[in-house]
Amino acid sequence: MDEARRVRIGRLRWHCRRALLELDIVFQRFWGEVGDDIDESTLDLMEGLLAEEDHDLWELVSGRRQSEDPAQQRLLARLQATPNLNTFATERH
């Protein structure tokens, strides 16, 4: 991976550290799923999404509000559909 891309991903990963635990968990799952294979257009969309304030971001991520940008809405749908890594849920029975 070239240095510029590595730095960009590193910065975006850090920008996923948020004020609200709910968002931290959703983004942690997302990176666990995509890893460093994330494509450039998704990186662009993530940058836009992460510029939102935390409460607004949670409204979008939780599906309480829809994005007006169809591409961003597709990313939100992907975030919402990322498999739940909560082992309590998958192992509970």
Binding site: E22, S62, N86, A89, R92
Partner: peptide, 21 residues
């Protein structure tokens, strides 16, 4: 409001059908 989304997102259960851990 919001509880069902939280249960689905973070516990992996639909709290209408299953209890939340």
């Amino acid at each position: 409001p919001g509880i069902r989304e939280i249960a689905i997102q973070f516990a992996g259960v639909d709290c209408i059908k299953e209890p939340i851990p």
